[in-house]
């Protein structure tokens, strides 16, 4: 009999997925100081390189000018509208992908026949780069937010769906049999056995999906021109406002960090009860 432990059934990508492993302990004050040294050093370098003319300032404006441009932006309502649009597109896209992938994943994952019949299709559709759909999206929705949503949903869906499938196949057969022998119905088994054991995988999928969704949100805004930070970058680039391009890139980076930190925090919260079982996953 096969006793799949969670650790073994995990695909190779799991030990360090896109979000990286949350590193809770071991952040001693010394590390924080060194980290600040790194950030300050980086900013100084960035300031110095254009100032001494290593790279002309029209290509790489000094850090102070970029940060000043960012500061100016931060008080403009249109900047916050763009941020809002970006977050909204990201959130809706991720939400749709998550709902669809969880439902389909649980349904297909728990019925072996369905799994067998869908495998080839999934393996073909999954690696298709979502940017291939850009022309179709433009054709269907123009520069409407829906254009970008199409890309976001397609990209994030597969990340989550695959993890849900792994998660469902990872359900401990002993727990499942125990539940059956105690006469738990199908729904209670789903609630008390399948869902908790698949949860870590679902959250990994969410983490990977969230990162990919942000990438595609920005891509769609940049290439298609749907409203948001990506479109602002494109506009700034076309009007040769170099420091603004850099400032907006920093803004998208900050958004990226926020998404990573947020999803990791969610993961830690949701898996607190799991810590003893899978210390390796959490710590």
């Amino acid at each position: 009999m096969k006793t799949d432990t969670a650790e073994n059934a995990r695909p190779p990508a799991r030990p360090s997925g896109a979000g990286g492993r949350p590193r809770v302990p071991r952040r001693s004050p010394n590390r924080a100081v060194l980290g600040i040294v790194g950030v300050v050093g980086f900013l100084l370098l960035w300031e110095a390189v254009p100032r001494i003319g290593l790279i002309p300032a029209r290509f790489l404006p000094p850090a102070s000018e970029v940060l000043a441009a960012l500061g100016e932006r931060l008080v403009l309502p249109e900047f916050w509208t763009a941020v809002g649009d970006t977050v909204l597109t990201w959130g809706i896209g991720l939400g749709i992908a998550f709902a669809a992938a969880s439902l389909l994943g649980f349904a297909v994952g728990s019925v072996p026949v369905l799994r067998a019949f869908t495998h080839s299709t999934v393996e073909f559709l999954r690696p298709i780069p979502s940017v291939a759909l850009i022309p179709l999206a433009i054709l269907l929705y123009g520069t409407d937010m829906a254009s970008t949503l199409l890309l976001v949903v397609y990209a994030a869906f597969w990340q989550i769906y695959i993890q849900v499938l792994y998660g469902v196949s990872d359900i401990d057969p002993v727990a499942e049999q125990t539940a059956r022998s105690y006469g738990l119905g199908r729904l209670s088994r789903l609630r008390y056995i399948a869902w908790p054991s698949a949860l870590p995988y679902v959250l990994t999928g969410l983490r990977l999906g969230a990162a990919v969704a942000l990438i595609l949100t920005i891509t769609g805004q940049l290439i298609i021109g749907t409203p948001g930070l990506g479109q602002q970058i494109s506009v700034a680039k076309n009007s040769d406002a170099t420091e603004l391009v850099y400032a907006l890139i920093i803004a998208t980076g900050a958004l990226g960090v926020a998404v990573n930190v947020g999803v990791r925090a969610l993961e830690r919260r949701a898996l607190r009860w799991h810590a003893s079982v899978r210390g390796e996953e959490i710590a």
Binding site: G35, G41, L214, I215, T217, T219, L248, I249, G253, L255
Partner: peptide, 18 residues
């Protein structure tokens, strides 16, 4: 320890803006 925060930031930037 010195480079980690900077790298984490670079990683978080969606690559298409490049």
């Amino acid at each position: 320890a010195v480079l980690e925060p900077v790298l984490e930031f670079f990683r978080a930037i969606p690559p298409p803006v490049l």
